[in-house]
Design a protein around this nucleic acid. Sequence first.
DNA 1: GTGGTCTAGACCACA
DNA 2: GTGGTCTAGACCACA
Lengths: 129, 129, 129, 129
Amino acid sequence: MSDFDPNLPIYIQINNSIKQAIVSGILKPGERLASVRERAEELAVNPNTVQRAYQELEREGISETRRGMGTYIVEHESLISSLKAEMAHDLLRKYIDGMQALGFSSGDITAELSGELAKPNGLSTGGKR
Amino acid sequence: MSDFDPNLPIYIQINNSIKQAIVSGILKPGERLASVRERAEELAVNPNTVQRAYQELEREGISETRRGMGTYIVEHESLISSLKAEMAHDLLRKYIDGMQALGFSSGDITAELSGELAKPNGLSTGGKR
Amino acid sequence: MSDFDPNLPIYIQINNSIKQAIVSGILKPGERLASVRERAEELAVNPNTVQRAYQELEREGISETRRGMGTYIVEHESLISSLKAEMAHDLLRKYIDGMQALGFSSGDITAELSGELAKPNGLSTGGKR
Amino acid sequence: MSDFDPNLPIYIQINNSIKQAIVSGILKPGERLASVRERAEELAVNPNTVQRAYQELEREGISETRRGMGTYIVEHESLISSLKAEMAHDLLRKYIDGMQALGFSSGDITAELSGELAKPNGLSTGGKR
DNA sequence: GTGGTCTAGACCACA
DNA sequence: GTGGTCTAGACCACA
């Protein structure tokens, strides 16, 4: 999984994937993130890049660094759930606004979604960009 | 309207907004785009940046330039409609994939959309990024 | 025939086509060229562009302007034949040098030519760019 | 070697020379190109101009860039050979079409080539444009 | 160091 | 006026 969108900074894409993992429960509050070096190797990316993603995460209050011990996801339960709501709302608005800019009505927007979800493999097409 | 997302190249954002305008009918096939210099001034951006957006557009077969006369949207009607389908599908997949990465089920995804569209001002919140 | 190579100035392409016409006998020494306006209309090009092509032609000693009468091909017979030799040599060197730069041997270069000329429609493929 | 044909965009000439180098085996698949800045200095040209040449190359599927590491020739062996065929055919058609436009017969065309190749220095006259 | 984007501004071919 | 190319040089993300 080292194919990044070249039009978006990689550190932002890494940061995002971590937030997704937290919100979806793959990473739990209090858990330790992979070390910068481990993660960099996995992603075939320079450690500086992972480092920057972790910094952003900390700035957002989602992780915290413990000297010599690594980076941990914050325990703050409500923060996680509000994060989920915020990210979902962001995705939703991007979808709705984008469709409306293309001239789709509310009915169209709902119909397109239903149609796509009804597809046999509706759950796993393409890649997230 | 000169606020660009700092995480995405400006020329891509300009290119995108033109495609939206075409698909939504604001710009019609055969019509002339604003000149590079005009548009650059409007957007408070360097002419080179607008030109790059126009170049991409031409590479995508959406516009054509007539020497000394300006840049025109191609007449090819079917191209416009396939462009609309492609852009809509892109938005849709980004929404679905994003939601699924957050752990939402198909039901949740539909419910969230309906809820948002039902809001009184459901048609014009936030900004398109 | 108004498809010009966008990477070469149009006036040079017009100038070239006139020289070809002279050398191939389509235009004869002493003959009058089409007026700037006529030619511009035929080529769907701005008169200034044709004008510039004619200027170049005169600079090369191939045509001369007679006030109020138009542009005429020079009578100088030897000039025409030397023009033919020069243009042919130019084409030839471009071909040979290009092929050699690609790593072809003299044998290859001859073989490729023979092969192409032996094709059924070997005399009229593609367009001159 | 910084003399460019003023009638052809410099970035196209640079792009061309790289393709020639690849096809003739001077540059091999997988190899790294000189950096934009290095090449710009060598050619006494602005870095932006070299970059544009590299971009075109990438668009043509001939090179790929690795973030922060440089630009590399693609490994795709067949692409190289088809590139060679395409460039040779282009040169050939330009020669044949040009000669025919001058009124030369197929016999003449072949004869001229043989004559030139038979010259003592037939392998290295003039400059490649 | 390496490529990507952007600005500021010049000059050219063409209309 | 209109797009195309080019220079000079800045700043950014990434290695």
